[in-house]
Design a protein around this nucleic acid. Structure first.
Length: 822
RNA sequence: GCCCCAGUGGCGAAAUGGUAGACGCGGCAGACUCAAAAUCUGUUGUUCGUGAGGACGUGCUGGUUCGAGUCCGGCCUGGGGCACCA
């Protein structure tokens, strides 16, 4: 977790789910590494420093000290000897070590580029960190700025990351899909148009375009370039109108709505290029506002008939619209495109050597022809961009390089690592305190020994969280990763987290893992073999009707059947059910719940009321139900006689009908709870435990005899072990109460006896024409003929068969009987 | 616009193609109590019927099947992801 200072219900649910897995697997005899650490760098610490004058380091470590108590109180079975904090030089120093390795490998580079600038946090953001045009943390509208920044070459791994998704069969389909879309591979053609008009300086070789629809080249109506294209800049230098148009394009709003509403605009440059396939045909070159510079080559050819944007553009500037793909059944002489471009399947026409081909074949043929002509080749293009990791902030991992006027960028030598953050910094002004520090940045060049300057950018905190799992396997190693330890533990078998990291942390970690593998530091290509994305904890929201203020659940009460604010008595309306958040005040503090109901009830409730992958709505009634269950379970343990029951032979117990029934229920319980945990259906497993409690309570006979008492003792012993992953403290107390050996946390998971778990007798429903008309009791495994005879003889069934002729009787063994009659 | 997911009682939900609504919350009734709370017991999809029993029922609509909440086609609604990506 980020050490914000307090845990919230989302943490409780997240870690409770993970703890169930850890405790279950441990009981199953596995070695379990279940660690905890702090993602401790980042903006909130600096904000606290600016607002309250505290030091980010002190603030962070104080928060860690406060927060550490909570997982302990929750009873999470964590190995605290492996605890790490990413703001510890012992951690980030090792990060600097591997960062330099990647720099040597060419996976880190520095370039000037247009970047996303968050004006509130005063720093740069990666593409993945811009959500709907806003900073992922600050929510501020992101601006474009030209800056020199450090980048990690994630695009080198675009293909590997895409292919690797296919191996992650224990990941949710949804997350794999999101990553696939984010990487966005497309196959197409990269080729040059040759100028028919005199080529502008620097473009003598032609103008390079990228397309995924080379099959539609015969429908080309124009060539378009992005306002940011070098050719556009060159033209603007000599043409004030072009310059004005480009400036106009840059002014448009950055929000989605603005982009969507923006009309297609173009500027006719007067330049023309040759159509590669049609002799004498020329295409006009336009600067167009809808063409992106950072995808493909920043230049396209427009085929209005088969691309909606090109069509909009063509209609506006009265350019020809020539269909070249004919839908099946359409008449080639009359087929036209109106306001909607045709993007569906069909056969090529009006396209010379492509005529009659289907789209895929035509693409290959067009690419082949362009390649023969030496104008270009088939190409793969990705939507994924390199990962900008520079942050102009103090509280982050320093980038371990030195800038020397004479020698350029120099690595900080290994014996001078870690580059430690200076502590004497001030936050009285905006901007990066490292830049203002009087001495820290001034160092000698490691190469020439002359005056040089440290890099003052720090790393994106997502770098810190992209390898911590490997560090956990040997948290004190003198090198970043102890390979033997990592080989023993990695990959992570079960990762539990929120969906919000689908294209952030989960993609970065996959990239860094692959990069470190190529560096020889890790053996696995994928960090997380199993991923589970849990749902959020939600709560109703409450709003004072009079003034629209949000009020918290603790500030309201029911008076005369109506909700009012306690202090003012003003009526309150119930709003939507939303993720717990401070802004909506629909937060329930875990500590208060622990105090009121105990941690076991809190753990139980967040897992019992919804499937783990779905959101769970926090309700007082719900947690009280869990709390009642805890008490009722304890009552069952507590009502067992203090003295251990006399030893009773197994066959004697089974001879007692009541005792046998209880043992059968017990073994069925083991089977179903085990399957529920294995399948991550914890809510169903908990429902089975509730059910079993009702069975246990409804068994008065079980205590009346030595056999009954012995059966009950066995049942309670099983129950203690089965509830242990969910409510560990209750399990421990119950286990001790009935004289269990040692601690239940160390007890092996119970195995079920298949014979006992099986039913002896079944109630089979009998259907007549698909409607249930009766039921019969038959022994398990009864022969089809026997069941058929009993079913047909059943009075209820006979009543419904009156006047009908039985055509067919379907007997599904031990399941159902359906009589088809007419 | 493209892609994905989900629609089941008053609510959260359960159901390898085989008794829809387990379990919990809430409601109702009863026991205990002077009373209330807590606790315990029973009951609780809708509807017709005094009852036995019947009809209807998993967003809508077709289909496959002896049998569909579950599989297939079309649609509606809600949620999420991506988005001028050529």
């Amino acid at each position: 977790p980020y050490p914000s200072g307090a845990i919230h219900m989302g943490h409780v649910r997240n870690y409770a789910l993970g703890d169930v897995v850890a405790r279950y697997k441990r009981a199953r005899g596995f070695n379990v590494l279940h660690p905890m650490g702090w993602d401790a760098f980042g903006m909130p610490a600096e904000n606290a420093a600016m607002e309250r004058g505290v030091h980010p380091k002190g603030w962070t470590y104080d928060n860690i000290a406060t927060m550490r108590a909570e997982p302990k109180r929750l009873g999470l079975s964590i190995d605290w000897s492996r605890e790490i904090a990413t703001c510890d030089p012992a951690y980030y120093g090792q990060q600097q070590r591997w960062f330099l390795k990647l720099l040597e490998r060419g996976l880190v580079y520095r370039k000037e580029g247009v970047v996303n600038w968050d004006p509130v946090d005063n720093t740069v953001l990666a593409n993945e960190q811009v959500i709907d045009g806003r900073g992922w943390r600050s929510g501020a509208i992101v601006e474009k700025r030209k800056l020199t920044q450090w980048f990690l070459r994630i695009t080198d791994y675009a293909d590997a990351l895409l292919e690797g998704l296919g191996t992650l069969d224990r990941w949710p389909e949804k997350v794999r899909l999101m990553q696939e879309n984010w990487i966005g591979r497309s196959q197409g053609l990269r080729f040059r148009f040759l100028f028919s008009t005199p080529a502008p300086h620097g473009f003598e070789e032609g103008l390079e375009c990228y397309t995924t629809r080379p099959d539609t080249l015969f429908g080309a109506a124009f060539v378009g370039i992005s306002p940011g294209h070098p050719l556009a800049e060159r033209i603007a230098a000599a043409d004030p109108k072009a310059a004005a148009f480009i400036a106009e394009c840059a002014r448009g709003g950055a929000s989605e709505a603005d982009i969507e509403a923006a009309p297609k605009l173009g500027y006719d440059t007067g330049l023309e290029v040759d159509h590669p396939f049609i002799d004498g045909e020329r295409l006009r070159v336009w600067i167009a506002n809808f063409i992106l510079m950072d995808y493909g080559t920043g230049a396209i050819f427009g085929c209005p008939a088969h691309d909606q944007r090109d069509l909009d553009f063509a209609r506006k500037y009265a350019l020809p619209v020539r269909p070249v793909v004919l839908p099946s059944g359409a008449d080639p002489d009359t087929f036209q495109v109106g306001h909607e471009a045709y993007t569906g399947p069909g056969k090529l026409f009006r396209s010379q050597f492509l005529d009659g081909l289907d789209i895929e074949t035509a693409k290959a043929a067009a690419i082949g022809r362009i390649e023969e002509m030496g104008l270009g080749q088939g190409a793969t293009v990705y939507r994924l961009r390199d990962w900008g990791v520079s942050r102009q902030r103090y509280w982050g991992c320093p980038i371990p390089v030195v800038h020397c006027q004479r020698c350029g960028v120099q690595h900080v030598p290994d014996d001078q690592l870690p580059v430690v953050l200076p502590e004497d910094v001030s936050f009285d002004r905006p901007g990066n305190p490292l830049l203002r520090h009087p001495t820290w940045r001034h160092v000698k060049c490691p190469s020439c020994g002359g005056e040089a300057e440290r890099e003052t950018d720090t790393l994106d905190t997502f770098v810190d969280s992209s390898w911590y799992f490997a560090r956990f396997t040997a948290p004190d190693a003198a090198q970043p990763i102890d390979k033997a330890a990592a080989d023993a533990w990695m990959p992570v078998d079960q990762y539990v987290g929120g969906i919000e990291h689908a294209v952030l942390h989960l993609l970065y970690s996959r990239f860094i893992t692959r990069a470190l593998k190529d560096e020889g530091m890790l053996s696995v290509a994928e960090p997380f073999a199993g991923l589970f994305t849990q749902g959020m904890v939600t709560h109703e929201t409450y709003k004072v009707m009079a003034d629209g203020r949000w009020v918290s659940p603790g500030e309201i009460e029911a008076r005369d059947g109506k909700l009012v604010e306690s202090t003012s008595g003003l009526p309150v309306e119930v709003g939507g059910i939303e993720k717990m958040s401070k802004s909506k005040k629909n937060v329930v503090a875990p500590e208060e719940i622990f105090d009121a109901y105990g941690v076991d009830a809190a753990r139980l409730f967040v897992m019992s009321d919804s499937p783990p992958e779905r959101d769970v709505q926090w309700t007082t009634g719900g947690v009280e139900g869990a709390w009642r269950f805890v008490h009722r379970v304890w009552n069952e343990f507590d009502s067992q006689p203090q003295t251990a029951p006399a030893k009773v032979a197994a066959d004697v117990i089974l001879a007692d009908a009541g005792a046998k029934a209880l043992l059968q229920a017990t073994h069925r319980l083991i089977k179903s709870v085990t399957e529920s945990i294995e399948g991550f259906r914890f809510n169903s497993g908990i429902a089975r435990l509730y059910e079993f409690l009702n069975v246990l309570k409804a068994h008065p006979a079980a205590t009346a005899s030595p056999q009954g008492l012995a059966a009950r003792h066995q049942a309670l012993g099983v129950l203690a072990r089965l509830i242990a992953p969910f409510t560990p403290h209750l399990a421990e107390e119950g286990w001790e109460r009935i004289g269990g050996e040692g601690m239940v946390v160390l007890a092996p998971w119970p195995d079920y006896d298949a014979a006992l778990a099986a039913e002896d007798e079944l109630v089979l429903p009998i259907q007549v024409n698909g409607k249930r008309r009766g039921e019969i009791r038959v022994p398990v495994g009864s022969a089809e003929d026997e069941v058929k005879a009993i079913a047909l003889a059943d009075p209820d069934v006979q009543r419904h068969l009156e006047g009908l002729t039985v055509r067919k009787v379907i007997v599904v063994k031990d399941r159902i009987v359906n009589i088809v009659a007419a």
